[in-house]
Simulated assay, not measured.
Amino acid sequence: MSTRPQLTTTPLTEHLLRGALEVERTAHGLLPHRLPARARAQNTDGQLAMAEVQPSGVRIVLRTRATLVELDTLPTKRVYVGAPPRPDGVYELLVDGRLAGRTCVSGGNTLTIDMAAGTAESRPGPVGTARFGGLSAGMKDIEIWLPHNETTELVALRTDAPVEPVVAADRAVWLHHGSSISHGSDADGPTSTWPALAAALGGVDLVNLGFAGSALLDPFTARTLRDAPADLISVKTGINLVNTDAMRMRAFTPAVHGFLDTIREGHPVTPLLIVSPILCPIHETTPGPSAPDHRALSEGRLSFSAAGDPAETAAGKLTLSTVRGELARIVEQRAAEDPNLHYLDGRELYGEADSVELPLPDALHPDAATHRRMGERFARLAFGPGGPLAVAADRAVRL
Protein backbone atom coordinates (compact mmCIF):
# COMPACT_ATOMS: atom_id res chain seq x y z
CA MET A 1 0.00 0.00 0.00
CA SER A 2 1.50 3.30 -1.06
CA THR A 3 1.79 6.10 1.47
CA ARG A 4 1.33 9.77 0.69
CA PRO A 5 4.66 11.64 0.92
CA GLN A 6 5.05 14.28 3.60
CA LEU A 7 4.29 17.64 2.03
CA THR A 8 5.21 21.12 3.22
CA THR A 9 2.90 24.07 2.67
CA THR A 10 4.60 27.24 1.43
CA PRO A 11 2.75 30.52 1.92
CA LEU A 12 1.67 31.97 -1.41
CA THR A 13 2.90 35.54 -1.80
CA GLU A 14 3.37 37.98 -4.67
CA HIS A 15 7.12 37.20 -4.52
CA LEU A 16 6.40 33.82 -6.12
CA LEU A 17 4.36 35.34 -8.96
CA ARG A 18 5.38 36.81 -12.30
CA GLY A 19 3.20 38.38 -14.95
CA ALA A 20 0.66 39.92 -12.55
CA LEU A 21 0.60 43.65 -11.91
CA GLU A 22 -1.22 43.34 -8.60
CA VAL A 23 -2.37 40.63 -6.20
CA GLU A 24 -5.60 40.77 -4.21
CA ARG A 25 -6.01 38.88 -0.95
CA THR A 26 -9.37 37.11 -0.89
CA ALA A 27 -11.19 34.87 1.57
CA HIS A 28 -9.57 31.88 -0.18
CA GLY A 29 -6.05 33.13 -0.90
CA LEU A 30 -4.51 35.24 -3.67
CA LEU A 31 -6.20 36.54 -6.81
CA PRO A 32 -3.77 37.79 -9.49
CA HIS A 33 -4.81 40.90 -11.42
CA ARG A 34 -3.47 42.24 -14.70
CA LEU A 35 -4.86 45.72 -14.08
CA PRO A 36 -4.14 47.66 -10.88
CA ALA A 37 -6.91 48.67 -8.48
CA ARG A 38 -6.98 52.28 -9.69
CA ALA A 39 -7.65 51.16 -13.25
CA ARG A 40 -10.24 48.60 -12.14
CA ALA A 41 -12.08 51.30 -10.21
CA GLN A 42 -12.44 53.36 -13.40
CA ASN A 43 -13.83 50.44 -15.40
CA THR A 44 -17.57 49.78 -15.65
CA ASP A 45 -17.47 46.98 -18.24
CA GLY A 46 -18.07 43.41 -17.10
CA GLN A 47 -16.17 41.99 -20.07
CA LEU A 48 -12.94 43.76 -19.11
CA ALA A 49 -13.47 42.95 -15.42
CA MET A 50 -13.63 39.28 -16.38
CA ALA A 51 -10.70 39.45 -18.80
CA GLU A 52 -8.18 41.24 -16.60
CA VAL A 53 -8.58 38.74 -13.78
CA GLN A 54 -7.98 35.77 -16.09
CA PRO A 55 -4.24 35.20 -15.53
CA SER A 56 -2.86 35.05 -19.08
CA GLY A 57 0.91 34.97 -18.77
CA VAL A 58 0.83 34.76 -14.96
CA ARG A 59 2.97 32.03 -13.44
CA ILE A 60 4.30 30.84 -10.08
CA VAL A 61 8.09 30.69 -10.17
CA LEU A 62 10.19 28.87 -7.58
CA ARG A 63 13.39 26.89 -7.04
CA THR A 64 13.23 23.50 -5.35
CA ARG A 65 14.35 19.86 -5.25
CA ALA A 66 10.73 18.75 -4.97
CA THR A 67 9.52 15.77 -6.97
CA LEU A 68 5.87 16.49 -6.20
CA VAL A 69 4.07 19.84 -6.40
CA GLU A 70 0.41 20.44 -5.52
CA LEU A 71 -1.42 23.70 -6.07
CA ASP A 72 -4.91 24.21 -4.64
CA THR A 73 -6.96 26.73 -6.61
CA LEU A 74 -10.49 28.01 -6.93
CA PRO A 75 -11.16 28.44 -10.66
CA THR A 76 -14.13 30.19 -12.23
CA LYS A 77 -15.36 28.32 -15.29
CA ARG A 78 -17.48 29.88 -18.03
CA VAL A 79 -20.52 28.28 -19.62
CA TYR A 80 -22.11 29.88 -22.70
CA VAL A 81 -25.79 29.13 -23.15
CA GLY A 82 -26.36 27.25 -26.40
CA ALA A 83 -22.65 26.77 -27.12
CA PRO A 84 -20.57 23.61 -26.72
CA PRO A 85 -19.03 23.09 -23.24
CA ARG A 86 -15.72 24.88 -22.78
CA PRO A 87 -12.74 22.73 -21.82
CA ASP A 88 -11.31 23.18 -18.33
CA GLY A 89 -8.43 25.63 -18.05
CA VAL A 90 -4.96 24.13 -18.40
CA TYR A 91 -2.13 24.41 -15.87
CA GLU A 92 1.33 23.83 -17.31
CA LEU A 93 4.50 23.10 -15.36
CA LEU A 94 7.91 23.98 -16.77
CA VAL A 95 11.18 22.63 -15.37
CA ASP A 96 14.17 24.79 -16.28
CA GLY A 97 12.14 26.25 -19.12
CA ARG A 98 10.87 22.96 -20.55
CA LEU A 99 7.32 21.69 -20.42
CA ALA A 100 7.14 18.85 -17.90
CA GLY A 101 3.44 18.52 -17.10
CA ARG A 102 -0.10 19.61 -17.93
CA THR A 103 -3.23 19.21 -15.87
CA CYS A 104 -6.66 20.71 -15.14
CA VAL A 105 -8.58 21.48 -11.96
CA SER A 106 -12.15 20.27 -11.60
CA GLY A 107 -14.81 21.95 -9.52
CA GLY A 108 -14.68 25.68 -8.93
CA ASN A 109 -17.17 28.47 -9.46
CA THR A 110 -19.34 28.60 -12.58
CA LEU A 111 -20.26 31.71 -14.58
CA THR A 112 -23.13 31.06 -17.01
CA ILE A 113 -23.30 33.62 -19.82
CA ASP A 114 -26.28 34.05 -22.14
CA MET A 115 -24.93 36.05 -25.09
CA ALA A 116 -28.34 36.39 -26.69
CA ALA A 117 -29.96 37.81 -23.55
CA GLY A 118 -26.88 39.68 -22.36
CA THR A 119 -27.03 38.12 -18.89
CA ALA A 120 -24.63 36.27 -16.60
CA GLU A 121 -25.22 34.16 -13.48
CA SER A 122 -22.59 32.98 -10.97
CA ARG A 123 -22.70 29.78 -8.90
CA PRO A 124 -20.08 28.95 -6.21
CA GLY A 125 -18.13 25.71 -6.25
CA PRO A 126 -15.33 23.84 -4.44
CA VAL A 127 -11.54 24.25 -4.44
CA GLY A 128 -9.58 21.78 -6.60
CA THR A 129 -5.96 20.67 -6.92
CA ALA A 130 -3.42 20.76 -9.73
CA ARG A 131 -0.92 17.97 -9.05
CA PHE A 132 2.46 17.44 -10.73
CA GLY A 133 4.46 14.36 -9.72
CA GLY A 134 7.44 12.37 -10.93
CA LEU A 135 9.75 15.39 -11.18
CA SER A 136 13.53 14.99 -11.08
CA ALA A 137 15.04 15.24 -7.59
CA GLY A 138 17.79 17.76 -8.36
CA MET A 139 17.65 21.50 -7.76
CA LYS A 140 15.62 23.13 -10.52
CA ASP A 141 13.58 26.18 -11.46
CA ILE A 142 9.88 25.47 -11.71
CA GLU A 143 7.20 27.60 -13.34
CA ILE A 144 3.50 26.84 -12.98
CA TRP A 145 1.64 28.75 -15.69
CA LEU A 146 -1.94 29.42 -14.69
CA PRO A 147 -4.83 28.95 -17.14
CA HIS A 148 -4.82 31.91 -19.50
CA ASN A 149 -8.61 31.95 -19.86
CA GLU A 150 -9.92 30.92 -16.44
CA THR A 151 -10.06 33.14 -13.35
CA THR A 152 -7.88 31.42 -10.76
CA GLU A 153 -7.66 32.11 -7.04
CA LEU A 154 -4.52 30.61 -5.51
CA VAL A 155 -5.32 28.79 -2.26
CA ALA A 156 -2.33 26.65 -1.19
CA LEU A 157 1.04 25.39 -2.45
CA ARG A 158 2.47 22.09 -1.20
CA THR A 159 5.74 20.35 -2.09
CA ASP A 160 7.82 17.43 -0.80
CA ALA A 161 10.94 19.62 -0.48
CA PRO A 162 11.51 23.25 0.53
CA VAL A 163 11.05 25.98 -2.04
CA GLU A 164 12.60 29.41 -2.47
CA PRO A 165 11.81 32.36 -4.71
CA VAL A 166 13.78 32.75 -7.92
CA VAL A 167 15.63 36.01 -8.38
CA ALA A 168 14.28 37.69 -11.51
CA ALA A 169 16.22 36.55 -14.55
CA ASP A 170 18.47 39.07 -16.22
CA ARG A 171 16.18 39.31 -19.21
CA ALA A 172 14.31 42.13 -20.87
CA VAL A 173 10.75 42.64 -19.65
CA TRP A 174 8.33 42.69 -22.58
CA LEU A 175 5.07 44.47 -21.79
CA HIS A 176 2.39 43.65 -24.35
CA HIS A 177 -1.19 44.90 -24.71
CA GLY A 178 -3.79 43.53 -27.10
CA SER A 179 -7.20 41.93 -27.58
CA SER A 180 -8.53 38.41 -27.04
CA ILE A 181 -6.03 37.11 -29.60
CA SER A 182 -3.18 38.39 -27.41
CA HIS A 183 -5.06 37.17 -24.34
CA GLY A 184 -4.86 33.72 -25.90
CA SER A 185 -8.36 32.90 -27.07
CA ASP A 186 -8.44 29.35 -28.51
CA ALA A 187 -4.79 28.60 -27.70
CA ASP A 188 -4.40 25.11 -26.26
CA GLY A 189 -2.57 26.16 -23.11
CA PRO A 190 -1.03 29.11 -21.26
CA THR A 191 2.47 28.63 -22.70
CA SER A 192 0.99 28.27 -26.19
CA THR A 193 -0.60 31.70 -26.58
CA TRP A 194 1.22 33.58 -29.30
CA PRO A 195 2.76 36.12 -26.85
CA ALA A 196 4.00 33.33 -24.55
CA LEU A 197 5.52 31.48 -27.50
CA ALA A 198 7.12 34.66 -28.85
CA ALA A 199 8.54 35.52 -25.41
CA ALA A 200 10.09 32.06 -25.03
CA LEU A 201 11.65 32.24 -28.49
CA GLY A 202 12.83 35.81 -27.96
CA GLY A 203 14.30 35.16 -24.53
CA VAL A 204 12.26 37.90 -22.85
CA ASP A 205 10.12 38.03 -19.71
CA LEU A 206 6.45 38.47 -20.64
CA VAL A 207 3.86 40.66 -18.96
CA ASN A 208 0.72 40.05 -20.99
CA LEU A 209 -1.97 42.75 -20.88
CA GLY A 210 -4.04 41.13 -23.61
CA PHE A 211 -7.68 41.63 -22.58
CA ALA A 212 -10.41 39.73 -24.42
CA GLY A 213 -12.81 42.17 -26.07
CA SER A 214 -11.17 45.10 -24.32
CA ALA A 215 -8.29 46.59 -26.32
CA LEU A 216 -10.24 49.82 -26.67
CA LEU A 217 -7.62 52.54 -26.11
CA ASP A 218 -8.92 53.07 -22.58
CA PRO A 219 -6.97 55.83 -20.80
CA PHE A 220 -6.61 53.73 -17.64
CA THR A 221 -4.97 50.99 -19.71
CA ALA A 222 -2.55 53.53 -21.17
CA ARG A 223 -1.70 54.71 -17.65
CA THR A 224 -1.15 51.10 -16.61
CA LEU A 225 1.33 50.64 -19.46
CA ARG A 226 2.95 53.95 -18.54
CA ASP A 227 3.50 52.94 -14.93
CA ALA A 228 4.54 49.30 -15.40
CA PRO A 229 8.27 48.49 -15.57
CA ALA A 230 9.29 47.48 -19.10
CA ASP A 231 12.30 47.23 -21.38
CA LEU A 232 10.16 46.60 -24.47
CA ILE A 233 6.53 47.50 -25.20
CA SER A 234 4.11 46.46 -27.92
CA VAL A 235 0.51 47.48 -28.47
CA LYS A 236 -1.68 45.45 -30.80
CA THR A 237 -4.89 47.35 -31.44
CA GLY A 238 -7.79 47.68 -33.84
CA ILE A 239 -9.97 44.59 -33.88
CA ASN A 240 -11.93 45.42 -30.72
CA LEU A 241 -12.49 48.99 -31.88
CA VAL A 242 -14.09 47.58 -35.02
CA ASN A 243 -16.02 44.65 -33.60
CA THR A 244 -17.51 46.68 -30.75
CA ASP A 245 -18.20 49.62 -33.08
CA ALA A 246 -16.71 51.75 -30.30
CA MET A 247 -15.73 54.87 -32.24
CA ARG A 248 -15.38 56.49 -35.63
CA MET A 249 -12.25 57.74 -37.33
CA ARG A 250 -12.70 61.25 -35.88
CA ALA A 251 -12.29 59.81 -32.36
CA PHE A 252 -9.88 57.03 -33.27
CA THR A 253 -6.98 59.17 -34.45
CA PRO A 254 -6.69 61.42 -31.37
CA ALA A 255 -7.35 58.41 -29.12
CA VAL A 256 -4.32 56.61 -30.57
CA HIS A 257 -2.18 59.73 -30.17
CA GLY A 258 -3.36 60.15 -26.57
CA PHE A 259 -2.70 56.48 -25.78
CA LEU A 260 0.86 56.77 -27.13
CA ASP A 261 1.45 60.11 -25.40
CA THR A 262 0.51 58.55 -22.07
CA ILE A 263 2.82 55.55 -22.55
CA ARG A 264 5.65 57.90 -23.46
CA GLU A 265 5.21 59.82 -20.20
CA GLY A 266 6.60 56.80 -18.37
CA HIS A 267 8.72 55.24 -21.12
CA PRO A 268 10.05 58.13 -23.23
CA VAL A 269 12.68 56.14 -25.15
CA THR A 270 11.64 52.50 -24.64
CA PRO A 271 11.22 50.66 -27.96
CA LEU A 272 7.49 50.71 -28.68
CA LEU A 273 5.97 48.57 -31.43
CA ILE A 274 2.46 49.24 -32.72
CA VAL A 275 0.88 46.16 -34.29
CA SER A 276 -2.21 46.46 -36.45
CA PRO A 277 -4.88 43.72 -36.63
CA ILE A 278 -4.26 40.35 -38.21
CA LEU A 279 -6.43 39.44 -41.16
CA CYS A 280 -10.08 38.92 -40.19
CA PRO A 281 -12.15 38.54 -43.37
CA ILE A 282 -15.52 39.46 -41.87
CA HIS A 283 -14.25 42.90 -40.83
CA GLU A 284 -11.70 43.77 -43.52
CA THR A 285 -14.14 46.09 -45.31
CA THR A 286 -17.29 45.67 -43.20
CA PRO A 287 -17.62 47.70 -39.97
CA GLY A 288 -18.80 46.33 -36.67
CA PRO A 289 -20.35 45.47 -34.48
CA SER A 290 -19.64 41.76 -34.45
CA ALA A 291 -22.66 39.67 -33.56
CA PRO A 292 -23.08 36.04 -32.51
CA ASP A 293 -24.16 33.89 -35.43
CA HIS A 294 -27.45 32.55 -34.06
CA ARG A 295 -27.69 29.90 -36.75
CA ALA A 296 -24.31 28.54 -35.63
CA LEU A 297 -25.45 28.66 -31.99
CA SER A 298 -28.53 26.64 -32.91
CA GLU A 299 -26.15 24.05 -34.35
CA GLY A 300 -24.06 24.02 -31.18
CA ARG A 301 -21.25 26.13 -32.62
CA LEU A 302 -19.93 29.53 -31.54
CA SER A 303 -19.32 31.84 -34.48
CA PHE A 304 -19.55 35.54 -35.32
CA SER A 305 -20.56 37.74 -38.22
CA ALA A 306 -20.15 41.43 -39.07
CA ALA A 307 -23.35 43.41 -38.58
CA GLY A 308 -22.19 46.79 -39.92
CA ASP A 309 -22.85 48.43 -43.27
CA PRO A 310 -19.81 48.88 -45.56
CA ALA A 311 -21.37 52.06 -46.96
CA GLU A 312 -20.91 53.73 -43.58
CA THR A 313 -17.13 53.71 -43.86
CA ALA A 314 -17.49 56.92 -45.86
CA ALA A 315 -18.89 58.52 -42.70
CA GLY A 316 -15.94 57.31 -40.61
CA LYS A 317 -17.03 53.89 -39.35
CA LEU A 318 -13.96 51.76 -38.79
CA THR A 319 -12.94 48.64 -40.66
CA LEU A 320 -9.71 46.74 -40.31
CA SER A 321 -8.50 48.16 -43.60
CA THR A 322 -9.04 51.77 -42.51
CA VAL A 323 -7.59 51.11 -39.06
CA ARG A 324 -4.38 49.67 -40.52
CA GLY A 325 -3.95 52.61 -42.85
CA GLU A 326 -4.42 55.16 -40.06
CA LEU A 327 -2.16 53.34 -37.60
CA ALA A 328 0.62 53.23 -40.21
CA ARG A 329 0.16 56.95 -40.91
CA ILE A 330 0.21 57.87 -37.21
CA VAL A 331 3.39 55.89 -36.55
CA GLU A 332 5.10 57.39 -39.59
CA GLN A 333 4.15 60.88 -38.46
CA ARG A 334 5.32 60.39 -34.87
CA ALA A 335 8.48 58.45 -35.77
CA ALA A 336 10.03 61.66 -37.14
CA GLU A 337 10.42 62.74 -33.50
CA ASP A 338 10.31 59.30 -31.88
CA PRO A 339 12.83 56.99 -33.53
CA ASN A 340 12.03 54.21 -31.05
CA LEU A 341 8.43 53.96 -32.27
CA HIS A 342 7.79 51.23 -34.85
CA TYR A 343 4.91 49.68 -36.80
CA LEU A 344 4.13 46.10 -37.78
CA ASP A 345 1.27 45.19 -40.09
CA GLY A 346 -0.62 42.39 -38.34
CA ARG A 347 -1.09 40.59 -41.65
CA GLU A 348 2.61 39.69 -41.46
CA LEU A 349 1.62 37.48 -38.52
CA TYR A 350 -1.55 36.11 -40.16
CA GLY A 351 -2.52 37.10 -43.69
CA GLU A 352 -4.37 36.01 -46.82
CA ALA A 353 -2.46 32.78 -47.42
CA ASP A 354 -2.76 31.81 -43.76
CA SER A 355 -6.50 32.43 -43.86
CA VAL A 356 -6.84 29.88 -46.65
CA GLU A 357 -4.73 27.29 -44.84
CA LEU A 358 -5.87 28.01 -41.28
CA PRO A 359 -9.22 29.82 -41.32
CA LEU A 360 -10.41 31.43 -38.10
CA PRO A 361 -12.73 28.76 -36.61
CA ASP A 362 -15.30 31.22 -35.25
CA ALA A 363 -14.51 33.96 -37.79
CA LEU A 364 -12.70 36.04 -35.13
CA HIS A 365 -10.15 34.00 -33.19
CA PRO A 366 -7.16 31.91 -34.31
CA ASP A 367 -6.77 28.27 -33.37
CA ALA A 368 -3.82 26.66 -31.60
CA ALA A 369 -1.82 26.11 -34.79
CA THR A 370 -2.26 29.75 -35.76
CA HIS A 371 -1.12 30.92 -32.32
CA ARG A 372 2.07 28.95 -32.82
CA ARG A 373 2.61 30.45 -36.27
CA MET A 374 1.98 33.97 -35.00
CA GLY A 375 4.33 33.51 -32.06
CA GLU A 376 7.12 32.24 -34.27
CA ARG A 377 6.67 35.06 -36.75
CA PHE A 378 6.50 37.77 -34.09
CA ALA A 379 9.66 36.44 -32.45
CA ARG A 380 11.48 36.59 -35.78
CA LEU A 381 10.11 39.95 -36.89
CA ALA A 382 10.31 41.76 -33.53
CA PHE A 383 13.09 40.09 -31.55
CA GLY A 384 15.20 38.69 -34.38
CA PRO A 385 18.20 40.38 -36.00
CA GLY A 386 17.22 43.83 -37.21
CA GLY A 387 13.84 43.65 -35.47
CA PRO A 388 12.51 46.74 -33.71
CA LEU A 389 12.77 45.10 -30.27
CA ALA A 390 16.02 43.20 -30.83
CA VAL A 391 18.59 45.82 -29.85
CA ALA A 392 16.83 46.72 -26.62
CA ALA A 393 16.45 43.06 -25.72
CA ASP A 394 20.21 42.56 -26.14
CA ARG A 395 20.94 45.72 -24.16
CA ALA A 396 18.67 44.67 -21.30
CA VAL A 397 20.38 41.28 -21.10
CA ARG A 398 23.83 42.89 -20.97
CA LEU A 399 22.72 45.23 -18.18
Rank of each mutant, 00 (worst) to 15 (best):
G238N: 01
P268G: 02
A328H: 14
Y80K: 04
P287F: 04
R78Q: 15
E348C: 11
G375K: 06
R334W: 07
G46F: 07
R398G: 06
I144N: 07
R324I: 07
M249I: 15
A363Y: 14
T224D: 05
P11L: 08
A255V: 09
A251M: 05
T73A: 04
K140Q: 14
A222H: 03
V53I: 14
E143H: 10
G97H: 14
T3C: 12
S321C: 02
A291T: 15
S276A: 11
I274Q: 03
T237N: 08
A251P: 00
E312A: 09
V167C: 10
G386Q: 04
A336H: 12
P229C: 10
Q333H: 12
P361S: 11
W145V: 02
A49D: 06
F259R: 01
T370H: 13
V207A: 00
R264S: 04
P11S: 07
R25F: 01
H283Y: 13
L48Y: 05
T221S: 08
V79P: 02
T322H: 07
T370W: 08
H365Y: 12
E70C: 03
P36G: 10
T237K: 02
A379I: 00
I142K: 01
D227T: 03
V391D: 04
H365S: 11
R295S: 01
F378L: 15
H257Y: 07
D218I: 00
A296R: 05
E24Q: 14
G138F: 03
N149M: 12
S185E: 15
R18F: 12
D231L: 11
L217K: 00
L16K: 09
P289N: 14
G108F: 04
V155E: 03
Q54D: 09
I239P: 14
A100R: 00
A137T: 15
S214F: 04
D231C: 13
F304L: 07
S305L: 11
L35K: 11
R398Y: 03
A336Q: 05
A335R: 15
L225W: 07
V90G: 04
D186M: 15
T129S: 06
T67D: 10
E14H: 11
H177R: 05
R18L: 12
T270W: 10
T152W: 05
L146Y: 05
I233D: 08
L7F: 03
A49I: 00
V23H: 08
I113N: 02
A369W: 05
V58F: 07
N149K: 05
L320Q: 11
G89L: 01
W174D: 04
L344E: 05
Y91H: 04
T237C: 13
G308A: 10
H267Q: 01
E299A: 10
P55E: 08
L399I: 08
K140A: 09
W194K: 15
A117M: 03
T64I: 01
A393V: 00
P385C: 10
L320K: 02
H257D: 14
A198N: 03
P281C: 13
G288V: 10
T110A: 12
V173W: 08
D114F: 01
G133L: 01
G288L: 06
D338T: 13
